[in-house]
Design a protein around this nucleic acid. Structure first.
Lengths: 220, 220
DNA sequence: GGGATAGTGCCACCGAGTGGCAAAAGCTGT
DNA sequence: ACAGCTTTTGCCACTCGGTGGCACTATCCC
C-alpha cells in the first residue's frame, strides 16, 4: 500500500540549506508557511485580492483553513509577508547596533544593512505587495500599521538603550521621519516598477535622506 | 391610532441650527448618521470594540444593519468618524488656500485653521477615538490609512495647484513630514489625556513643528 | 390630492475568523 | 521495532462583518 506523503518537497524548491538543521516537524511547518505566502501572493496578483478566498488558497496549498490561521493571523498578514520580513529584520538589526552618532544617520545606515541581508527574491515579493496595497485599501491600512508598530518599537528600543524618555518629542519625530523617508523612497521605486532592483532602491533611499533638509524649506 | 414616529428628536440634542435649512429627508439621514457615530463611540468605549457587534449598535439606534452600511462603509469607519471629520475639513481648507510661501508653513497654518473650525465636542470624540486605536489594531490600521489617503490627496492637490510634478520627492517628503508632525503632536496630547483641550493641542502642534530642524540632527 | 424619488427594513447569502475535539504525524524512551 | 507522549492537523459548527435584491414607506414636487 503506497504511503500517503502529506507534504512532499517538489524538485523545484528543494533543500533550502539552513532548514536541514531543524527537526522534521519544524521544517514541515516552515514549508507550509512559505507555500502559503508564496501561493497567496501569486493568487492575489493573478485573480485579485478580494476575488481570492482563503478556501481557494487552502485548496491550492492543500491545507485546511484552520492550518492557515495557525500560520497567519489574517488574510492581510499573509499578503504582507514581505513587509513583515523587512520590519522584523530591521528591528533585529537596530537592536544589534552600537547606537553612536546622530539617530537619523544610524537608523538610515541600519536600513541599508537590513536591505542588504534580505533574501534575493525579496525584491520581487515586496514589489508585488506594494502593487496590491495600491489597489486594496485594507492591505494599505495593515501595511501602514506595520510601519506604525515598527515606529513604536523603535521608540521603545532606542529610548531604553540610550537614556532618552520614551515620550521625547525629538526621538519620536526623528523615527517618524526615518519611516516616512523609507516610504517615500519605496513609493518612488515602486512607481518605476522597481527598475534597477535593490541597488536602485538603496540608492533612492540615500538620495531621499539627503533631501530631507531641503524638504523642510521646500517652497515651490 | 397613535402615529409611529420613526426618528423623534430627543429634547437633549435638539435643533442643531444649520440642519433646519436642509430638506426633511436629509435632516433625518444626518440625524441617524450622527446617532450612529455617537452611539458607536459610546458603546465601543463602554463595552469594547470587539465585544460590540453591529447588531448591538443597530438595536440601540433602532435602525437596520442595512441602514448602517448605507451610512458607513465599515465598522471601522464609524469608529473613526472624528478622524474623518478632521481630514476632510483639512483637505477643504487647504484647497481654499492661497498657496504662497514655504509648503511646510502653509500646511502647518492650514491645520490650525482646520482645528479652530471644528465643532466644540470634536476634542472629546477625537480623544476617545485615539484611545480606541491604541487598543484595537484594525482601528489603528484604518486610522493610518486616513492619514495616508490625506497625504496622497495633498500631494495631488498641491502638485496640480503649483507647477510641481506629483512624483517630486521634496513635495512628498514635505507632506509626509507634516502628517508625521501632526501624529507626533497628537500622540503627545493623547498621552496626557487631552489635558488643556484644543488650545493645548494647537500649542503642542506649533511646538512640535518648531522642533523639526532639531529632530533631523538629534543625537542622544 | 397623486405620482416620482429617495431612504428603509427584511431576508438570504458569502467569506473571514474562532473554539473544540479527535485523528495523525513526529519525537521520545526501551 | 514498538508503546507512550507531544505537537500539529483536519473537520465541524458557529459568530460576525458585509452585500445584493426586493418590497415598503416616507418625503418631495406638481
Amino acid at each position: 500500500m503506497p504511503q500517503a506523503v502529506s507534504n512532499p518537497v517538489t524538485a523545484a524548491e528543494a533543500a533550502p540549506d539552513e532548514l536541514r538543521a531543524l527537526p522534521l516537524r519544524e521544517r514541515k511547518k516552515l514549508r507550509t508557511r512559505h507555500a502559503l505566502a508564496e501561493t497567496a501572493l501569486r493568487l492575489f496578483v493573478e485573480r485579485g485580492y478580494d476575488a481570492t478566498t482563503l478556501d481557494d488558497l487552502c485548496d491550492e496549498v492543500e491545507v485546511s483553513k484552520r492550518t492557515f490561521f495557525r500560520n497567519y493571523p489574517s488574510k492581510e498578514d499573509v499578503a504582507l509577508a514581505a513587509d513583515s520580513d523587512l520590519w522584523s529584520a530591521y528591528l533585529d538589526d537596530v537592536a544589534a547596533l552600537d547606537p553612536e552618532g546622530p539617530l537619523l544617520d544610524v537608523l538610515h545606515a541600519a536600513l541599508h544593512t537590513t536591505l542588504a541581508a534580505l533574501e534575493p527574491d525579496w525584491d520581487r515579493r515586496f514589489l508585488a505587495t506594494r502593487d496590491l496595497c495600491d489597489t486594496v485599501p485594507t492591505l494599505q491600512a495593515h501595511s501602514l500599521r506595520y510601519c506604525h508598530d515598527t515606529t513604536q518599537a523603535l521608540v521603545d528600543q532606542v529610548s531604553a538603550r540610550r537614556g532618552v524618555p520614551s515620550d521625547d518629542v525629538h526621538l519620536r519625530l526623528a523615527i517618524e521621519i526615518v519611516v516616512s523617508t523609507w516610504r517615500t523612497a519605496s513609493v518612488t521605486w515602486t512607481a518605476q516598477q522597481g527598475r534597477g532592483g535593490r541597488k536602485a532602491l538603496t540608492d533612492l533611499l540615500s538620495a531621499t535622506f539627503a533631501e530631507l533638509p531641503a524638504a523642510l524649506t521646500f517652497a515651490p
